[in-house]
Design a protein around this nucleic acid. Structure first.
Length: 637
RNA sequence: GCCGAUGUAGCUCAGCCGGCAGAGCAACUGAUUCGUAAUCAGUAGGUCGCCAGUUCGAUUCUGGCCAUCGGCUCCA
């Protein structure tokens, strides 16, 4: 009796049972396919050697697909583990998945791996690839598998098998040559299919991601279908390095982080501060347009207030404290407390709501040393923070307005972002009912506004669930910037109320929200986003005057006076150097416009702008140039 | 906080087995007065991250601390 194989193009094939998926696929294509890495059997990924014994819906997984690449990388991680065990006898394997841009494998080994070990490992990997070992799948009972791995001294594999749910009776293993790994699969047919790979770095990683567990050694690598794709990726990594905000921050003289001042504390230089001022100035105006009130709280508040809010209990480890006249003060890690006191300063009516308190609030958080990272993770930062106090029925429209604000702001900077809803964490305050209510409110607002989102279980703030907006930087890292948090607890703890239509007291709801998040982090992400070449409206220096020779300095000075009088951010570069040198310097500073001033310009009372992408705009009047800059600022270009 | 690597001039980096500290760029001085990505010559510049120890002698070896980088964990 033949079985029926159905392909995605609806083509059907009648074949003898026992045919492999790979053979069936080659019949479908009428040829052996080199691009096939695995098959999809009834929608599930499987090896090409998988045998088909009944009617099946079959599809091909090609190396060009994300799924195919991920299978290839997973197979490379096996080859790497194989090589590591050959080179370093006694290394124990744990897990080795494929990840976004490559793969890793975690090992336990007495000696420390370093980058210098990579050539040895890669050499052995190439030998394993040249041997073209087939990946052979075998299924066995979990008892047998435990015995197998225990016999090989693979404690981590034994632990993995023992921790499987009780209803799992068999597991699968994969062999290539004399290497055996516990693995769900699928894998590429044989090691010889691997054409391009590279080991990248070694790092510590806790077993099963838990800091209470032993630290293993993780080797990261990447792999691609061919050398070309691998090289493209490596070049991309190089490019990403060039736009690292820490490097550009130094090169463009924007900021420093200095040991002598302290780790995680940013010192803004004139140009960095100007950039920051421009962003903050823009933001203040945008908030006023949207009905926010500007407020400002103190940097330190008495400890009792932090106890009342729950911060002392739940956030103490991240807070700094100071003592004055035998009074203990907490240095604020969040801005909400003062805003609560502003609300409480008088009796509120339902007619007053919503109240939107906005503060560019500077906070301090004691972050662990190992997590500090340029501007992206610091210990003192300024949030564009607001607390909205409203009636429960106003929640939906307020959340919507914030989401619109975020969308508008991200559009100005040209950022893509993803939305996540984070629910109640372990360490939290408030009742189950309030959490359910708050979570529902956020969820409904997202649904009503047709915003796509992902749920992040247990990732909320200690006082409420939140909607996070994550934007992507040049290194494809996601950064949380905007966030909306719904809070029933603080209004309760501070006994906030308003007089309703019925003349009775009611409890308002509070939304915590930021749009850019931390200004420092946002600037870091911006630097990488623009690779330091800021648009004209943001650029700390919008243009630079370049004289051809000394005799043009006097005229150039008059141009400079006109430009700065009109608020144009302009620099002078009148050094005794050739024009080519000055252009190169201005180019490396990524200044949007270079204004060349020579005989022609002096005679015609003009300037000759050259853009940083090498375009010459010809001689134009100073007034015309000012109008051009102003127009770009107006349009946020 | 944990694992590993690193810390030398303003910046980027050399410096072997312990014996007076090196380059390029930047800075400064002079010459040159030049039209769209580097003009030439000269001068100056250092607590070799910090603190101990070993040694006749430590940038080099050992220990502790601080910081940075790559990750893990945690987060705006």
């Amino acid at each position: 009796m033949d079985i029926k194989i159905i392909f995605p193009d609806k083509k059907e094939l009648a074949v003898k049972p026992g045919i492999t998926a790979g053979k069936a696929i080659s019949l479908w294509y009428n040829k052996a396919l080199d691009s096939a890495v695995a098959a999809k059997v009834n929608g599930k990924p499987a090896d090409l050697t998988y045998t088909l014994n009944e009617d099946t819906a079959l599809d091909i997984i090609e190396i060009s697909s994300d799924e195919g690449l991920s299978i290839l990388r997973h197979s490379i991680s096996h080859v790497m583990a194989h090589a590591v065990q050959d080179v370093f006898a006694g290394a124990k394997v744990s897990i080795g998945p494929s990840i976004e841009d490559g793969f890793y494998y975690d090992f336990e080994y007495a000696e420390k791996f370093t980058n210098d070990d990579f050539p040895k490992i890669e050499k052995r990997m190439r030998e394993i690839i040249a041997a073209d070992y087939p990946f052979i799948r075998e299924e066995m009972t979990r008892q047998k598998a435990v015995k197998l791995f225990a016999g090989r001294g693979e404690d981590y594999k034994v632990e993995l098998i023992n921790d499987l749910p009780t209803d799992v009776s068999t597991v699968s293993i994969y062999k290539d040559g004399d290497y055996i790994d516990l693995c769900r699969g699928p894998h590429i047919p044989s090691t010889g299919k691997i054409k391009a790979f590279k080991l990248l770095s070694v790092a510590g990683a806790y077993w099963r991601g838990d800091e209470k567990n032993k630290m293993l050694q993780r080797i990261y690598g990447t792999g691609f279908a061919d050398e070309q794709a691998l090289n493209d990726h490596l070049n991309l990594l190089e490019e990403a390095k060039k736009r690292d905000h820490r490097r550009l921050g130094k090169e463009l003289d924007l900021f420093q982080i200095n040991d002598e001042a302290g780790a995680g504390l940013v010192i803004f230089h004139p140009k960095g501060m100007l950039l920051r001022y421009i962003i903050e100035d823009w933001e203040r105006k945008e908030h006023l347009k949207r009905g926010y009130d500007m407020v400002m709280g103190p940097q330190i508040l008495k400890i009792d207030l932090w106890k009342k809010s729950g911060h002392f209990e739940h956030y103490r480890d991240n807070m700094y404290f100071t003592e004055i006249d035998e009074q203990v003060y907490g240095i604020k890690p969040m801005n909400c407390l003062a805003h609560m006191l502003i609300y409480k300063s008088k009796i509120r009516s339902y007619r007053d709501l919503p109240l939107r308190y906005f503060e560019l609030g500077t906070v301090h958080r004691h972050e662990k040393t190992g997590v500090l990272h340029g501007l992206l993770r610091v210990r003192q930062f300024t949030q564009d923070d607001a607390h909205i106090l409203c009636m429960p029925e106003q929640l939906n429209s307020e959340i919507r307005a914030i989401a619109d604000f975020v969308n508008y702001a991200m559009g100005i900077f040209g950022f893509e972002y993803e939305v996540e809803l984070s629910t109640r964490p372990q360490n939290s305050i408030g009742t189950d009912e309030d959490w359910a209510l708050a979570t529902k409110a956020l969820e409904n607002a997202l649904k009503d506004n047709k915003i796509n989102y992902k749920v992040n279980e247990g990732d909320g703030a200690f006082y409420g669930p939140k909607i996070d907006f994550k934007l992507k930087d040049a290194l494809k890292r996601k950064w949380q910037c905007a966030t909306i948090q719904c809070d029933f607890t603080l209004p309760e703890r501070f006994d906030l109320n308003y007089i309703g239509v019925d003349g009775e007291k009611h409890r308002p709801v509070m939304l915590h929200r930021v749009i850019l998040g931390a200004i420092e982090r946002f600037i870091g992400v911006l630097i990488e986003h623009y690779a330091g070449a800021f648009p004209v409206w943001l650029s700390p220096t919008q243009c630079i005057l370049l004289t051809v020779t000394d005799k043009h300095i006097n005229y150039a000075e008059t141009v400079y006076e006109k430009l700065i009088a009109d608020g144009i951010r302009c620099e002078k570069f009148f050094d005794n150097e050739k024009l080519g040198y000055k252009i190169r310097q201005a180019q490396m500073q990524k200044i949007p416009y270079m204004l060349v001033i020579g005989d022609k310009e002096m005679e015609g009372q003009t300037v000759a702008p050259r853009t940083r992408d090498g375009q010459n705009l010809g001689a134009i009047s100073v007034q015309k140039f000012i109008a051009l800059i102003n127009e770009m600022c107006e349009k946020k270009k």
